[in-house]
Each structure stands twice: as C-alpha cells, then as structure tokens.
C-alpha cells in the first residue's frame, strides 16, 4: 500500500505525469516518494510481472528503476522528482517483456 506523509508537508507542489496522467509530488521528493504516496507499486518485475515498489531505499538493491518517456531509466529512490517528469510504468512498451 501507499506511503503516508507524516512530516514536511508544507513544501510546494511539483507536477509530473505517470503513463500520461497528471500527478503531483512535493519539492524535495524522490521519484519513489512522489510515486508511492499515490500508488502501491512503481514497476513490474521482469519475469512474472508482479508489482514491485523497491526495497532498500539507499541505492543498493536496484529494485526501483523506472522508465521515463525518452527511454532512459532512473533509480527512483535516489533521483529527485523534477517538474514535468514523464514516467512510464504500465504502458505497453514497458510491460511487453512480461507478457506471455
């Protein structure tokens, strides 16, 4: 389930998109926090397609890589959210490797 904001809630909003849908995080959020405050996962595991959200949050496990619309991949737990980020999670080109 989703993250919950417990402190530092007075920060200015930052707009971005997930699979083309408008979303909002806060200035200073990591991409991981911006995503997981609104949803329970941020990618699908390559082999079985099960949801994954990340695990270590310190850049060691590499479980939280997400794709941007330009094809680049970022590690969500160590990448700061920036305005206008165009993140792709469940669009067909991102899920095809897991389709049987």
């Amino acid at each position: 389930m989703a993250f919950t904001r417990l402190a530092e809630t007075g920060r200015p909003p930052v707009a971005f998109t997930v699979d083309g849908i408008a979303a909002e995080g806060c200035e200073g959020d990591t991409v991981m926090v911006a995503l997981l405050t609104a949803r329970g996962h941020l990618r699908r595991e390559e082999f079985g397609g099960t949801p994954r959200a990340g695990f270590c949050m310190m850049g060691a496990c590499q479980d939280c890589w997400v794709r941007l619309a330009d094809g680049s991949r970022i590690r969500a737990c160590t990448t700061p959210l920036s305005p206008g980020m165009d993140i792709r999670i469940d669009t067909p080109e991102d899920t095809w490797p897991t389709l049987a």
């Binding site: 389930m1 993250f3 926090v33 329970g40 996962h41 941020l42 595991e45 099960t50 949801p51 994954r52 959200a53 990340g54 695990f55 270590c56 949050m57 310190m58 496990c61 737990c77």
Partner: peptide
Amino acid sequence: DQAGAWSLGAAQIA
C-alpha cells in the same frame, strides 16, 4: 518479494 515489504533501513530513510 511483494511491493510493500521493505528493509528496516528503507523504513528509516523514508
């Protein structure tokens, strides 16, 4: 291996 299982370190960093 499900989403929502985290390391303790992750819980603290969050």
